[in-house]
């Protein structure tokens, strides 16, 4: 998972594989961060305190 593992030797397979993996992880991470921050902002703005 981490390129400093002893047995690691970069090759094409690693690039594709790790590229795909980190791409996905980044999107998920950024997406969730975005959602949480926006939710906090929204809450601070007073949205969602509803009485329905």
């Amino acid at each position: 998972m981490l390129p400093f593992s002893f047995e690691w030797a970069w090759d094409m397979g690693h690039m594709v594989f790790m590229g795909g993996l980190w791409y996905a992880l980044t999107i998920l991470g950024l997406g969730m961060t975005y959602c949480i921050i926006m939710a906090a902002v929204d809450t601070a703005k007073g949205k969602g305190s509803h009485n329905h």
Partner: peptide, 17 residues
């Protein structure tokens, strides 16, 4: 409210997920 907003925001970008 926070959870409500969170869920709302998550829905918003659900397509990306």
């Amino acid at each position: 409210p926070f959870f409500h907003n969170l869920s709302h925001n998550m829905h918003g970008i659900m397509a990306i997920f």
